[in-house]
Design a protein around this nucleic acid. Sequence first.
DNA 1: CTTGTAATTATACACTTGCATGATTACGAA
DNA 2: TTCGTAATCATGCAAGTGTATAATTACAAG
Lengths: 227, 227
Amino acid sequence: MQVYNYKVWKSPVSDNPPKFKREPAEHRREALIKATLSLIAEKGVQAATVRAIAARADVSQGMIRHYFSSKEELITAAYEHHMDRLTDLTSASADADSGAPAARLAAFVVGSLTPPVVDAGSVSLWAGFLTKVHDDMQMRDSHERTYYNFRNRLEALIAAVLEEAGQPATPQKLRHLAIACNAVIDGLWLEGGILSGAFAPDELPEIGIRSVGAILGMNLKKAGQQR
Amino acid sequence: MQVYNYKVWKSPVSDNPPKFKREPAEHRREALIKATLSLIAEKGVQAATVRAIAARADVSQGMIRHYFSSKEELITAAYEHHMDRLTDLTSASADADSGAPAARLAAFVVGSLTPPVVDAGSVSLWAGFLTKVHDDMQMRDSHERTYYNFRNRLEALIAAVLEEAGQPATPQKLRHLAIACNAVIDGLWLEGGILSGAFAPDELPEIGIRSVGAILGMNLKKAGQQR
DNA sequence: CTTGTAATTATACACTTGCATGATTACGAA
DNA sequence: TTCGTAATCATGCAAGTGTATAATTACAAG
């Protein structure tokens, strides 16, 4: 049974084909992380075994312990990579919009509720990791960090919107609004990823904008369209 | 190394202590399910091994295959048990309130966002199972069933509230409102369970009621208090 | 061309996993 | 009491797990 399928390439002299290639460390780490993520997204954490990861990354299983001090460390690195990618994607959609605060908030919401952020694999990954957040301290820290990062970004957008509308809120009120809006987005993102077929293409962003607008007491939809 | 600790009780004749006791089948199934749930809640799905479950239920590991056709079937049964318990708990808080529709909806929201529904173990359990929802078809069906069960209940409460307020909504509008309110509740429930210490005791229900009210365009808080 | 050395592979080990099987044992029926 | 049988236990097995270690091998410096 051939398990490994190490990459083959042409040798300068064809009669002595090298059996593997030395790659820069960052390349290898990235390949291992991507292999881990795709495995977890497809078949869950329990499928991300040392051998399966190595096979998917086209390397021998020894590489994992060569580039990470343990398999757990690889899992954690993969989690951070995934979450960073998610926040980058949503932030990008808000930052791309240089219009009024309301428009930027709307873009942020829509970005969070459309592919590739809304995705079955993403949710599966997130849930798979969440299991470890419970007891692994490093994971717990990582989760809190990304959660607050997202919520604070949201809170800043909300503050700008309220200020522009001439309805500034107290810090506590602002905090509550951010928590609430964050919850709607999270909930919609979740079910959108799990029950992918249960919603029409633009249904989720639509509901998201309307709900966030309702919570803030204004019509984000119109504000978002007039850009 | 002593692994098992079978229950000991007094024998009618003390010189011949029986080594185990025959229990009704339903007792055993329930004990195995509870052992499974507590294990998953504490240390994640990967800790719910045949041996660990048996040890916690104070039986030999053979019992699992005796009462369930496979370990997977036990896991599924445990999932359904857990979800049924969650929906029962939230429904109970709404059904207990026989007041105005708005009060019942408020009770439903509050019940969903206070312990024991909001609980680290519950969320951990839910996330652990979610991993399996992705590929296991039976799990997928079970998830959809409980999800729609919860959302439909919510939708019925919302419909009653809107009707009483003289603002009946179209089916599509009603569906959107239910999805949105469901999302807020889910999101708040999630973070409340994960970051248990990050919220004040009554902060989550407070935010929940205010947000659901905002989405529906009314003040649920006052309506809930006047019972 | 040599040669050193770090990257990579190959293999082995101790342990855990779910499941199967046969040996016990409690307990109701006769 | 005796006895049958289903419930329960004890043990073993093959496959899979993460990790450790030694054997290869690419590749650049001299």
